[in-house]
Design a protein around this nucleic acid. Structure first.
Lengths: 132, 132
DNA sequence: CTTGACCTTCCAGTCACGGGAAGCCCTATG
DNA sequence: CATAGGGCTTCCCGTGACTGGAAGGTCAAG
C-alpha cells in the first residue's frame, strides 16, 4: 500500500505518517520509485499508534507501548504501570482544568455583562493591587 | 526595578518577562546600561498576565484582556464574552480528558498487571485487527 | 583588582505535527 | 505521443509559550 491508502485506512494524515517514520516509530519499505510501501503489519501498527494517541499517550509512551506490544514475553504489569502513569497525568490535568473552571466560572457569574465598564473579571485578574 | 525584582514579585521567570516584551505584551523602559527598568504599573500588568495565564487564557486572549483592562470605556459584556469563550474551551478539554480517562480506566481495570504477557490494554489498542 | 551575581542578546530546542514549495512518477485521455 | 491530473518525494518554515545555554557586559563588595 502507498501512503495515501494507509492514511485513509488508519485515519492518520500522510504528513503524520511520514513524521512517524522520521522519528523511527515505523519503517516502511521503499519501492523502486522511492515511494513508501506499507504492509498490513505496518497499517496495524499505525492504527495501534492512532488509538494510543487518541487516549492521550505521548509519542514516547506510544513507542514504549509498541515495544511492549511486540514483545511476546512482556509482563502485563509493565503495560499497566505505564497506563496508570498516564491515567495520573490525565487526572492531574483534569484537576488543573477543574480549578481553573471553578475560579473562572465564579468571575463570569459575578460579571453583569452589560455596557458598563465595571467588571469583576478584570478586577479579579488585577487582584489585590489597587490602581496605576 | 530590574527584571530580577519583577520576576520575584510577579512570580514569572525573567525569561518569560523578556519573552513578553518580545511579543509586545509589555514595554519596559531601559536604563543607560541597557537594563530593563520596570515601574509599579509594569509589575501590575505582569501580575495581571500571570493570573490570566493561570486561568488558562492564551497569550492572545491575555493581550485582549489587557487592552480591555486599560480601556476605561470598555463594556463588561466584552470581557464576559471572552471569558465565556474560554470557559467553553476548558469544558471541551475537560470532556476530551474525561472520555480518555473513561476508556483508559476501563482498560487498566481489566488488566491483571502480573508477570504474564496477556494484556487487555494492548489488546484494546490493537482493537479489531487480528494478528500479524 | 577580582569575584560573583546580575544583566544583555542570540540561537537552538521543546511537542507533534501542518503548510507549502519544488519537483518526480504514474495513469488516462485526446 | 503529449499532456493533464493526482499522488508521491524531500525540504524548510511556522505553531505556542516558553526554556536552556552560550558569550559577554555591568555592578557592588571585599
Amino acid at each position: 500500500m502507498n501512503i495515501g491508502e494507509v492514511a485513509e485506512a488508519s485515519g492518520l494524515p500522510a504528513k503524520t505518517i511520514r513524521y512517524y517514520e522520521d522519528i523511527g516509530l515505523i519503517t516502511p519499505h521503499r519501492a523502486d520509485n522511492g515511494y513508501r510501501m506499507f504492509s498490513e503489519a505496518h497499517l496495524h501498527k499505525l492504527a495501534f499508534i492512532a488509538r494510543a494517541r487518541g487516549l492521550g499517550f505521548s509519542i514516547e509512551q506510544c513507542r514504549t507501548l509498541l515495544a511492549l506490544y511486540e514483545d511476546r514475553g512482556r509482563a502485563s504489569a509493565d503495560v499497566k504501570k505505564l497506563a496508570e502513569t498516564h491515567l495520573a497525568e490525565i487526572d492531574a490535568k483534569m484537576k488543573e482544568l477543574a480549578d481553573m473552571r471553578h475560579t473562572l466560572a465564579d468571575l463570569v457569574h459575578a460579571c453583569a455583562g452589560d455596557h458598563r465598564p465595571d467588571c469583576p473579571i478584570l478586577s479579579g485578574l488585577a487582584a489585590s493591587v489597587v490602581s496605576d
